[in-house]
Design a binder for these strands. Structure first.
Lengths: 152, 152
DNA sequence: GTACCTGCAAACTGTTTGCAAATGA
DNA sequence: TCATTTGCAAACAGTTTGCAGGTAC
């Protein structure tokens, strides 16, 4: 379990190692990113950051997210509809996604058996697998029950 | 097993049903698409089509591929690196992809056990799965053996 | 003081569309 | 004939970058 402070320490360390600088903007962006719900795109994130620090530009959010990705604190995810979202990356954790095509809800899951089979398939093809992605698309339980979902 | 003629018949039928028109360009694009290797992007396809019919515009290729997709003859695939490729779609066939991050080679595979587990996971989450995607990334056997691959 | 960072605006990439001229049925 | 299609060029959306002024260290 990682506490928010860990992320700041980790980021500060990365910044130091690379000879970069810790700025107000970068701190704010990291803070807002951590506080956000797990899957967020740049535009939304920029909007949220502006609530805290209204002068921050889109390019800074963009560049900071690249930085957080390099630092191993964030992960860029491109989904099938072409949208790119960022999500916090916990060390050595892996999961896949289940996406509701009606309300857009994204649920995470992990399944050890599938992982094992994936490795096996790769091996059978003489392939050295480094990573993978799997997304299941369909209708979530909420939508099936007729409940609406408000964008959150 | 479908022969090239089947695709033309199928396309001609779709065109007729929709009250559209069978043009030289559409025929050429379909022909080149079928003859191409299985995963091709619009730019490459446009280049190939121009070899056969030099006046065809990019927009026509774009619109024709949308049409072929609607007709069920092609399938649009967005991969993790953000690139969109088209591939021929055989009726009720499903497969996933293994992508070499070194040479770009794309191999197809299918695995019944994984499919079953995917359905099971979805079910456990109260999710009605309509489709899914799975991609394994890594280094292919050719690259591991040190062989180069020429763009083909 | 200096190298790094920021915000802006503009460049870029890939996708999509409006339009006038051309064409298939 | 006449609605559909085409090629062009331009609009678009999302991403990326150059630069002049500002800031962390």
């Amino acid at each position: 379990m990682t506490s928010p402070t860990d992320e700041f320490d980790s980021f500060a360390q990365y910044i130091r190692e690379q000879g970069l600088k810790l700025t107000r903007q970068r701190e704010d962006i990291l803070r807002v990113f951590i506080a956000s719900h797990r899957h967020i795109n740049l535009e939304q994130l920029h909007r949220e950051v502006r609530k805290v620090n209204p002068t921050v530009g889109y390019a800074t959010v963009y560049r900071t997210m690249k930085l957080l990705t390099e630092a191993g604190l964030a992960q860029e995810r491109r989904f099938g509809d072409g949208h790119t979202l960022y999500e916090p990356r916990e060390p050595q954790e892996h999961h896949d996604h289940m996406i509701c095509t009606r309300c857009g809800r994204i649920e995470e899951f992990e399944n050890e058996s599938i992982e094992r089979l994936q490795h096996k398939v790769a091996e059978q093809h003489g392939f050295r697998m480094t990573h993978h992605r799997m997304e299941l698309y369909g209708i979530c339980s909420g939508c099936l029950a007729g409940r609406e979902r408000v964008e959150g």
